[in-house]
Design a protein around this nucleic acid. Structure first.
Length: 240
DNA sequence: TAGGCCATCTGGTCCT
DNA sequence: AGGACCAGATGGCCTA
């Protein structure tokens, strides 16, 4: 084989290797997307980074493991603290936003028994639930709707035969969503109210408006739905 | 503009 | 030999 032919062959093999590597990374990214969909906070438009997805998944597994060990639900504070361990501030805010908590109340003051619950979605001033500043000024209340239990719900309750696990289902994206700049986006409709799996939060009117402003964050509850803990703060009902 | 995140390319190593 | 896997380098994009 001539040296030129050998060189061409090396180049060809390099090109093929590059293509294989691309495919490999794409499949890795697909797997990460699958993981994003089964960790508690999933947003189609505000995707968690790879590293945050892995961290959140690890924490999620820890929570589930603890539930299996102890056989009982952790309290909300413990749940969120464990879930947010080692996460960046924006991701912590996202999780807090899903749970409608003040992230500072459980990240900067360890050992504090009480924590605040308040709406974390400011329709007018911020750019979505990731924004830390969103939770301090004027806000609109949020509402959770739909019954919920997670993939581990059967630990506590019978799974609905009508509703597959999110692990088996396709996308759980909401029927419509706001992206970071609040442009409306049409996506496939999913009726969460009829589904045992999946929990979405959307803002509700505060006396002067009747329109709903759903956004694209949803939180899947992992603790079962039997006897949910209900919180009411400033007229906002939060089921956990 | 700096920093974070990501996709891609590349060469090295290990395994079949 | 060839493929899978890995980590470093690089450049693009986005956001604060």
């Amino acid at each position: 084989m001539s040296s030129q032919a050998r060189l061409d062959r090396v180049r060809l093999r390099r090109i093929e290797a590059n293509a294989r590597e691309r495919n490999r990374m794409h499949s890795l990214n697909n797997a990460l997307d699958s993981l994003r969909k089964v960790v508690p906070c999933y947003s189609k438009t505000q995707k968690l980074s790879k590293i945050e997805t892995l961290r959140l998944a690890k924490n999620y597994i820890c929570v589930l493991g603890e539930i299996l060990r102890s056989g009982k639900k952790p309290d909300l504070l413990t749940f969120v603290q464990t879930l947010c361990k080692g996460l960046s501030q924006p991701t912590t805010n996202l999780v807090a936003g899903c749970l409608q908590l003040n992230a500072r109340s459980f990240t900067s003051e360890p050992g504090v028994e009480s924590f605040s619950l308040y709406p974390a979605y400011n329709h007018h001033h911020h750019h979505g639930p990731m924004s830390e500043s969103s939770s301090v000024d004027s806000v609109r209340p949020l509402r959770a709707f739909g019954s919920f239990c997670g993939p581990y719900g059967p630990l506590y309750d019978s799974p609905s035969p009508d509703c597959p696990s999110p692990l088996d289902a396709g996308t759980l994206s909401p029927p419509m969503s706001f992206n970071g700049i609040f442009s409306l986006k049409n996506e496939e409709a999913v009726d969460y109210r009829s589904c045992h799996y999946g929990l979405r939060y959307c803002s509700i009117s505060q006396g002067h408006s009747t329109d709903l402003d759903p956004y694209d964050i949803h939180l899947r509850d992992v603790l079962g739905s039997k006897g949910p803990n209900d919180f009411k703060v400033d007229g906002v009902n939060i089921s956990f």
